[in-house]
Simulated assay, not measured.
Amino acid sequence: MIIRKSPEEIEKMAAAGAIHARTMKLVAGKIREGVSTAELDAAAEKYIRSQGAEPSFKGYRGFTGSICASPNSMVVHGIPGPYRLKRGDIISVDIGVTYDGWVADGAVTFPVGPITPVAQKLLEVTEASLFAAVEQCRVGNRLGDVSHAVQTLVEGEGLSVVRSLVGHGVGRAMHEDPQIPNYGEPGRGPLLEAGMVFAVEPMVNAGRHMVRMGDDGWSIYSQDGSLAAHFEFTIAVTEEGPRILTPWHEELAADPTPA
Rank of each mutant, 00 (worst) to 15 (best):
G214L: 08
G169L: 09
A149S: 08
L159K: 05
E135S: 11
P186A: 02
G158H: 01
S147H: 00
G214R: 06
S160T: 04
V146W: 03
F198W: 07
M213V: 12
V161W: 01
S164C: 04
E157G: 00
L192D: 11
N141A: 12
H148P: 01
D215S: 14
V146Q: 00
V170D: 01
V146R: 00
L191A: 06
G214P: 11
S219P: 13
G171C: 02
V146G: 02
Q136G: 03
P190H: 13
V139N: 02
V197C: 04
G214A: 05
R172G: 15
V197P: 08
M196K: 06
F198A: 01
M196D: 13
P186V: 09
M203S: 13
A173S: 15
C137F: 00
R172P: 04
P186G: 11
S147K: 03
F131T: 12
G158A: 04
V211L: 05
N141F: 10
E185H: 10
M174Q: 13
Q151T: 06
T152K: 11
N205L: 11
E185C: 08
A149N: 02
Y183R: 06
P202R: 04
V211Y: 08
P186W: 04
T152N: 08
E201D: 13
V154K: 04
S147A: 07
R188G: 12
L165E: 11
A133N: 01
G214S: 14
A173D: 15
G187P: 07
W218D: 09
V170E: 03
M210V: 07
N141M: 06
I180S: 09
G171T: 03
R138F: 07
N205K: 05
C137R: 02
P190V: 15
G195Q: 10
H175M: 15
L159S: 01
V204P: 10
I180L: 14
R138Q: 12
V154D: 00
A199M: 05
D145A: 01
M213A: 13
H168F: 14
F198S: 06
E193G: 06
H168P: 10
Y183T: 00
G217I: 13
A199Q: 07
R138C: 05
V197D: 11
T152I: 00
H168W: 04
D216P: 11
P190T: 12
V150H: 02
P181D: 09
C137Y: 05
A173W: 15
T152M: 06
V166D: 03
M174N: 13
N141D: 00
N141T: 09
V139W: 08
G214F: 11
V162N: 10
A132W: 12
N141C: 10
V134G: 03
R138H: 04
V161A: 07
V154F: 03
H148F: 14
Q136A: 13
H209W: 14
P181K: 10
G140E: 04
R163T: 08
E155I: 00
V200W: 08
S160V: 07
G156K: 00
V162C: 07
G169N: 05
P186M: 06
Q179L: 15
D145G: 03
D145R: 03
L143Q: 10
H175N: 15
E135Y: 07
E201M: 13
